[in-house]
């Protein structure tokens, strides 16, 4: 339990959240850039980003990252 409250684990969790935020921000920028590009302009209706698949992957990413942060304390309490 000491490890879970240790600077190590808290630091890893904070880094993880920051990296997650940067990746999601980068994804939004990439989607916006694509929609404004020649390909995005010509295929506006057929291929507007983000697609449902990308949105699902982003939600999965957030859930898994949060699980990574909160799973160890839950496992510690269970076992």
């Amino acid at each position: 339990m000491q490890f879970l409250l240790s600077p190590w684990f808290i630091g890893l969790s904070v880094v993880s959240l920051v990296v997650m935020g940067l990746e999601l921000w980068g994804l939004l920028r990439a989607c916006k850039r694509h929609n404004n590009s020649p390909i995005g302009q010509m295929c506006a209706k057929a291929d507007c980003l983000p697609t449902a698949g990308i949105a699902f992957a982003a939600v999965l990413y957030v859930l898994l990252t949060i699980a990574y942060i909160f799973l160890p304390p839950i496992l510690h309490n269970v076992f």
């Binding site: 990296v19 990746e23 990439a30 390909i39 295929c43 992957a57 990413y61 990252t65």
Partner: peptide
């Protein structure tokens, strides 16, 4: 987990915006 998890999704998101017209 920190390294591979974030690297995997970074690569996934990077690939998802690739298109050929």
């Amino acid at each position: 987990l920190l390294l591979f998890h974030h690297a995997a999704f970074y690569r996934l998101f990077s690939s998802s915006t690739t298109r050929v017209l």
